[in-house]
């Protein structure tokens, strides 16, 4: 059975980040390419958010299972750094999903990831930008800990990278 690229992407929309179940892998930006060869072979290219992220193996398996479940028998899912992930790859839909989940989305930036961007976060609870980074390391590799000086709540941010 052969599927259009758009149909494959729609399937992958259903695969979620195991640690942030409202965020699809497509919106997370870890699906870098979907190719369908003339013989119907499907290749999905993926790239890790953080190189040491233990969830990446699960995401790869989830993609493979989703393809197999929909009758695609010839496929390859590749993980590589060819088109490396950065937080600008998060889609607008993904950013909204993060916010609804209670995580501050990373600010978008131009080219250089400098210290100001690393430490900047908007509180997902009260939208204040009067916040302080408490630790660059949180419960997962992709999250940092911040404190909101306005509503006096700790919150987590999906790190800019």
């Amino acid at each position: 059975m052969t599927l259009e690229k758009e149909a494959i992407l729609r399937l992958l929309e259903e695969v979620k980040d195991p640690e942030i179940p409202v965020l699809s892998l497509v919106d997370l930006g870890v699906i870098t390419a979907v190719d369908i060869a003339v013989d119907g072979h499907v290749t999905v290219n993926m790239t890790p958010t953080f190189a040491g992220c233990p969830a990446m193996d699960y995401m790869k398996k989830d993609v493979e299972q989703m393809l197999a479940r929909h009758g695609i028998s010839h496929f390859t899912v590749r993980m590589s750094f060819d088109d490396p992930w950065n937080s600008n790859k998060l889609t607008e839909k993904g950013r909204t999903a993060l916010k609804d989940f209670g995580l501050a989305p990373p600010p978008t930036y131009d080219l250089i990831l400098d210290l100001d961007i690393l430490e900047y976060a908007t509180c997902p609870n009260c939208q204040s930008t009067n916040t302080t980074m408490r630790s660059p390391f949180g419960p997962t590799l992709c999250r940092a800990l911040h404190f909101c000086n306005n509503c006096h709540q700790m919150f987590e941010q999906f790190k800019p990278l």
Binding site: P48, A51, G52, C53, F81, S135, F137, L141
Partner: peptide, 20 residues
């Protein structure tokens, strides 16, 4: 606690880097 988490996270990062 934050430092426990920080060093554990850096461990995970570094081992991930070595894997690459």
């Amino acid at each position: 606690l934050e430092e426990d988490i920080a060093f554990s996270s850096m461990a995970q990062d570094k081992i991930g880097h070595s894997l690459a």
